[in-house]
Deep mutational scan, measured.
Amino acid sequence: AQFIESYVCRMCSRGDEDDKLLLCDGCDDNYHIFCLLPPLPEIPKGVWRCPKCVM
């Protein structure tokens, strides 16, 4: 059997509050909206890229 790795935030390495986890459309990394600098108030609509992919 294969275990699917749960999504974890690249900043805090936690997978809780998954309703606040953002998936980068560039590299598929995950980030909590409140772990980003600056934090986001809510999940953005449409395409989102993490700080690494925006640079």
Rank of each mutant, 00 (worst) to 15 (best):
V8H: 09
R49N: 15
W48C: 00
M55P: 15
C35T: 01
N30D: 01
V47P: 06
C9V: 01
K52R: 12
V8A: 10
L37Q: 09
K52D: 14
C35H: 06
G15I: 10
C9P: 00
F34Y: 15
K52G: 12
V54N: 06
V8E: 06
S13P: 09
D16I: 14
Y31D: 01
C50N: 00
C27P: 03
D18C: 07
I33S: 08
R49K: 15
E42F: 06
E17P: 10
K20W: 05
S13G: 13
P51G: 03
C50D: 01
P38L: 06
L36G: 02
P41F: 06
L36M: 05
M55A: 11
P51C: 04
E42K: 03
S6A: 10
D25G: 10
D16A: 11
F3K: 12
K45Y: 03
L21F: 10
C35E: 01
A1M: 14
L21H: 04
D16W: 05
Y7M: 13
C9Q: 02
F3N: 15
K20A: 10
M11G: 10
R49A: 06
H32F: 02
L40T: 08
L21S: 03
M11A: 10
K20N: 05
N30L: 06
D28R: 15
C12R: 03
W48E: 01
L36E: 03
C12E: 01
D28K: 03
G15Q: 09
F34D: 08
D28T: 03
D18R: 14
P39C: 06
Q2K: 15
L23N: 14
E42V: 08
R10D: 04
D18V: 13
D25R: 11
C53V: 01
E17R: 14
V47I: 09
E5M: 14
S13C: 07
F34N: 14
M11Q: 13
K45D: 15
I43K: 09
G26F: 11
Y7P: 10
S6H: 05
C9L: 00
R10A: 08
Y31E: 03
C35F: 03
E17K: 09
R10H: 15
I33Q: 14
D29Q: 15
F3C: 07
C35D: 02
L23Y: 08
L22N: 04
R49T: 11
P51I: 07
L22I: 15
G46P: 04
R49M: 10
I43P: 05
P41D: 12
I43F: 07
D29N: 15
E42H: 04
K52I: 12
P41N: 08
E17I: 11
C9E: 02
R10G: 08
N30G: 13
I4M: 14
S6R: 12
S13Y: 08
C50F: 04
D25Y: 04
M11L: 06
D25F: 04
V47Y: 11
L37P: 10
N30H: 07
D16E: 10
P51H: 12
L23T: 14
Y31R: 02
D25W: 04
K52P: 13
F34P: 05
C27W: 00
C24Y: 01
W48V: 01
E17M: 09
E17G: 12
C50Q: 02
C35A: 01
M55D: 13
Y31F: 08
D19H: 11
C50H: 01
W48R: 02
F34C: 11
C27V: 02
Y31P: 01
A1L: 05
C35P: 02
C9I: 03
M55W: 13
C27A: 00
L22W: 01
E5D: 13
I4W: 05
V47M: 08
M55L: 08
W48F: 06
L22T: 13
P38H: 09
C53P: 02
E42R: 10
G26I: 07
F34M: 08
D29M: 06
P38C: 07
I43W: 07
F34Q: 11
K20H: 09
K45S: 06
R10T: 13
C12S: 01
D25V: 12
H32S: 00
K45E: 08
L22H: 02
V54M: 08
Y31C: 03
G26L: 10
P38K: 05
V8Y: 08
F3G: 12
C9G: 02
C50M: 00
Q2F: 03
D25K: 07
S13M: 07
S13D: 11
D19Q: 12
C9A: 01
L37R: 14
P51M: 10
E5Y: 08
P39K: 14
E5G: 09
Y31L: 03
M55G: 03
I4S: 11
L22P: 01
C27R: 01
D29Y: 13
R10V: 08
C35I: 00
P38F: 03
G15M: 08
V54P: 04
L23I: 08
N30T: 11
E17S: 11
D16L: 07
K20L: 10
S13V: 09
P39G: 07
V54H: 12
D28P: 15
K52A: 12
G26P: 01
S13W: 06
Y31G: 01
E17F: 11
P51W: 07
N30R: 13
Y7D: 15
C35R: 04
Y7L: 11
D29C: 14
A1V: 05
G46Y: 04
W48P: 04
E42Q: 13
Y31V: 09
L37D: 14
E42P: 02
